[in-house]
């Protein structure tokens, strides 16, 4: 069913924060493989290292030790700008707090990754408008974030993540700031993306949300506690 091509392959990853004399182990010797087209939920209690792992997978952060291969490339060897390029082309981020630029319109927000990838203005406008339409916001392109509801803002953020047609979509508690009904609407959107063949990885501590994924990875104290496929939904 899922293609066997691994898009993410981490081996023995650790992340240690030094706080004065104290060492905080955010991740301890974690290994994980995620293939193209998977729908994965990262779960675990607060402080278990979900966000840390997510940032690592998204090439925002680098591990203290261990090896990370993304799409066959060794991420450990890349410099800041090469990581930025990977984030731009291959990764779409969705944040709990949306993180839209407050003074830019929905369209400009969605266009931004394309600005950094160097796409020409008209192509950019067209692509961003299409992407906004695909998340159901065709009528809202000229609105600024404060003129949109929470659910609409998160849709804009999802459109921004999708606009470069990335290899994976990473969402850190994408429904965390939304009521449960709106949360379910957003999850329906992720389900749809998954059905279209996208690789989706999301962080959550709500079982309701995790249930949408096909595979659930549970973390505790920086370790993978369990890694199971999710039979609940089909």
């Amino acid at each position: 069913m899922t293609s066997p091509t691994p898009i993410i392959n981490i081996e023995h990853i650790s992340k240690i924060y030094e706080m004065g004399d104290e060492k905080v182990y955010a991740l301890r010797d974690v290994s994980l493989t995620i293939s193209k087209g998977e729908y994965v939920a990262l779960m675990g209690p607060s402080g278990s290292g979900k966000s840390t792992l997510m940032n690592m997978l998204g090439c925002l952060d680098t591990p203290t030790s261990g090896r990370y291969e993304f799409n066959g490339a060794n991420v450990n060897e890349l410099d800041d700008d090469e990581l930025a390029e990977i984030r731009n082309r291959e990764i779409g981020f969705v944040f709990q707090t949306f993180n839209l630029l407050p003074r830019a319109t929905a369209l400009s927000n969605v266009e931004l990754p394309l600005v950094y990838s160097g796409m020409k203005a008209d192509a950019r406008h067209r692509r961003a408008a299409e992407t906004l339409a695909s998340v159901g916001l065709a009528e809202r392109t000229g609105h600024k974030p404060n003129e949109l509801s929470g659910g609409q803002r998160q849709r804009v953020a999802i459109a921004r993540a999708l606009v470069t047609q990335p290899s994976i979509i990473l969402a850190d508690e994408p429904t965390g700031n939304l009521d449960s009904k709106t949360g379910q609407e957003i999850m329906a959107l992720f389900d749809e993306l998954y059905r279209q063949g996208n690789t989706v990885i999301l962080v959550t501590h709500e079982e309701d949300i995790a249930r949408h994924a096909r595979r659930i990875v549970r973390l505790r104290d920086g370790l993978i506690e369990s890694d199971k496929s999710n039979g609940a939904s089909a």
Binding site: G58, D80, R87, F95, N99, L101, L112
Partner: peptide
């Protein structure tokens, strides 16, 4: 925060 967002979506240092 804005700088963080821009970097996350692919802005290079320059």
């Amino acid at each position: 925060k804005e700088i963080g967002v821009r970097k996350a979506i692919g802005a290079k240092r320059r």
